[in-house]
Design a protein around this nucleic acid. Structure first.
Lengths: 190, 190
DNA sequence: AGAATAAGATAGGCAAGTCTATCCAAGGAG
DNA sequence: CTCCTTGGATAGACTTGCCTATCTTATTCT
């Protein structure tokens, strides 16, 4: 007989199940029944917490986002190493997150009249990102010319990474990451 | 009494209606009934041609793609002008196409195990694109150094445009297009 | 121990959507 | 003019998913 889960543990299990349904099947095929079944519980348990599909989806996304928030801060001694390390980590760990946020939630954006950039903005608002730290250190070492670091250029490697992920729904090969850094980003900043 | 449409005209009306449903409501809310109603016809007319939802979606996408295939070839005398003109046209006319192909079809990709890049590849296979022509002319004028024109760099401005469209689901402001060309693309190629 | 709380099972009403069967009507082909 | 194809209307069977009501049972609190 399995133990009966309660409170926070049960809630986490439900949100995890919802997230897995979302990544596996996408929003279009996301059903409450499937979440119930995957979590091994019964409908009322779910509905006591989130009274409809959209509430559950929102909660699952927020839950996963807050889980993934922190990234290790690389420190390899060079901008190239730092940026590549960061990109490799994002590339390895965030493919699902990126595709769900950008693609699977299409219906949610349509209903709310928002877009992925709105979601992103509301999450990053006022936070100092890892990239900012890396770049400041590189400026301190004289590796980059600060006047070249426009917002566009700062986010360029990550925009390109995100773009490639969205076109393939898969991690990007490592040589592509190096290509982005070596033939696009570094030439523009140094 | 409205005339009764037949054959190709009717088929086009149905596919157009399907495409509009797709752009307005997305794949998740795409229903046969809605298409029937928008086209002003009745269910059997639809089912005689496409026996289910997915077949219809596929047909509508292909139909629209073949409609949009050609782009005007700009000739402003400078690479900057040519590229900007092309980007402006794409930005103005392809937002729906890009978002539908990348986002609304998520479910389709999941079922077929494909991705937007597969769709893109199968469409562009062997075709000489407008961009190639522009760039070759620029090389001829000595505006760009040919050895810098890697595949990555050639597609860079369009990848960034596509990325921004996917983050906002809307046309990109003109000053952003200029920013991409002036602070990213041209510095890399000249 | 006993009471209170919340988990979990089961069943079912309701709504929406898919697809088919059946019919009638328009309009082009002979 | 008549036939025959095909468009179009209507109705309904069937399925699926949402959500609620009701009941039993495990776990925790006092």
């Amino acid at each position: 007989m399995p133990e009966r889960r309660r409170g926070a543990a049960l809630e986490k299990a439900l949100l995890d199940a919802a997230w897995e349904e979302l990544t596996d099947n996408g929003y279009a095929r996301f059903t409450m029944d499937a979440v119930v079944q995957r979590a091994g519980t019964s409908p009322p348990v779910l509905y006591r917490r989130w009274s409809n599909r959209d509430e559950l989806v929102r909660a699952a996304v927020l839950h996963t986002l807050s889980d993934h928030r922190r990234v290790e801060l690389p420190d390899t001694g060079s901008l190239r190493g730092d940026i590549l390390t960061l990109m490799r980590e994002l590339n390895a760990t965030r493919v699902q997150l990126v595709t769900v946020i950008s693609v699977q939630l299409a219906d949610y954006y349509q209903q709310t009249g928002t877009s992925p950039s709105d979601l992103r903005d509301s999450l990053l608002k006022g936070r100092r990102t890892t990239v900012d730290v890396l770049l400041d250190r590189a400026v301190g070492r004289g590796e980059v010319k600060p006047e070249r670091l426009t917002e566009r250029v700062r986010s360029l490697p990550f925009d390109l990474l995100r773009h490639d992920i969205l076109m393939t729904f898969a991690p990007v090969p490592d040589h592509v990451l190096e290509e982005i850094v070596d033939t696009v980003f570094l030439p523009l900043v140094s």
